[in-house]
């Protein structure tokens, strides 16, 4: 008896460690860098991390969180980022107002999302292959539109400066891009975890067949999922262009693997490994803090990548391995 009680205690400790491995890792990393680098915990540095490393990746990852919740994947988020960025910059460069630029940019992302939706729901192509195909087409489109990948720079026109200013100002002491992220994160959280649409999405992710027989209009909801993901990526594209005042072809793809990683790191928070907005944001923060911390400690860019890979590997190993042992 005492042995089994002891075992179950061990199991629950393991279960606890597995469940909170991301949080524990997160805390350990923050403490480590706080000791290792005096500048790490300064407001200026944290502000820098938030604005430069978190916001854009987090918005892309929010979109992927919706898609991955529905049981799919979107490899073309980079294309949505790039297309929004390209159209936005082209419109501003041609002298249109900021409103037209934003509308055009989001419209371009919308087209990518609708294309994905048609391929997945009408032609029954698996999300992985459909969005892979769109990724290839998107890359070609950008190369053709920019004669092989020439960046477009915004010369200081009125709208361009205005946007750059917005990207760099603060609202009530919070940088505007962060405000945008908070609004979007709350919206996606409510949509995914508190709305009927969210329940449908979760149902499709858990049991696609059951969702279908329960009368959920799977194609319609799935289309919505992919359109939302593309639009969120489009927001990142516009923020990116507004911040760097240019469009650099094929730059959006850099978000893809990090966003997938962040979303799946977030899934380790839930027992059923379901993606959640809070988990995703935590995943993004974890990646951003490690990047920044390694930089402050003096590791160069190349070692940072190794460090992030090793760290993500260890977090995943702890979460998956301990949970497996707990069962």
């Amino acid at each position: 008896m005492s042995v089994s009680a002891n075992d179950s205690a061990k199991v629950s400790v393991r279960g606890f460690l597995a469940k909170y491995s991301v949080l524990i890792a997160f805390a350990a990393i923050v403490i480590f860098f706080a000791i290792a680098s005096p500048t790490f915990l300064t407001p200026a540095n944290l502000f820098n991390v938030l604005v430069n490393n978190v916001v854009m990746l987090a918005i892309v990852a929010l979109g992927l969180t919706i898609v991955i919740s529905s049981g799919g994947i979107d490899l073309s988020v980079g294309v949505s980022v790039d297309m929004a960025s390209m159209i936005f910059v082209m419109l501003l460069a041609a002298g249109y107002s900021g409103v037209v630029g934003v509308a055009g940019g989001l419209g371009a992302a919308l087209i990518v999302g609708i294309l994905n939706a048609i391929l997945i729901t009408r032609l029954n192509i698996s999300p992985f292959l459909a969005t892979l195909g769109v990724l290839f087409i998107g890359q070609s489109t950008q190369q053709l539109a920019t004669s092989g990948g020439q960046p477009i720079y915004l010369t200081s026109g009125y709208a361009a400066d205005q946007f750059n200013a917005i990207a760099r100002t603060a609202l009530l002491g919070i940088p505007t891009p962060v405000v945008v992220l908070i609004v979007l994160a709350v919206a996606v959280h409510l949509l995914l975890h508190r709305s009927v649409f969210g329940r449908y999405v979760q149902a499709m992710g858990a049991q696609p067949g059951v969702a279908w027989y329960s009368g959920i209009r799977v194609p319609r909801e799935l289309s919505m999922v992919h359109v939302l993901c593309a639009l969120l990526a489009g927001v990142t594209g516009i923020l990116l262009s507004a911040t760097v005042k240019s469009y650099v072809p094929l730059s959006g793809n850099a978000f893809l693997l990090d966003a997938i990683g962040a979303t799946f790191i977030g899934t380790t928070l839930s027992h059923e490994r379901k993606p959640s907005v809070i988990g995703t944001l935590l995943g993004v923060l974890l990646l951003a803090i490690v990047k920044n911390g390694l930089l402050l400690v003096g590791w160069n860019f190349y070692w940072q990548q190794v460090g992030i890979g090793v760290l993500v590997f260890l977090v995943l190993a702890a979460s998956f391995g301990l949970r497996r042992a707990a069962h």
């Binding site: 997938i260 990683g261 940072q304 190993a317 998956f320």
Partner: peptide, 22 residues
Amino acid sequence: LGILPLLATLAVLNVAAGMELT
């Protein structure tokens, strides 16, 4: 460890690419 292949190989991708760069 039972990590999803998509995730496990993604982490290893970063390690390998980083080591190549280093």
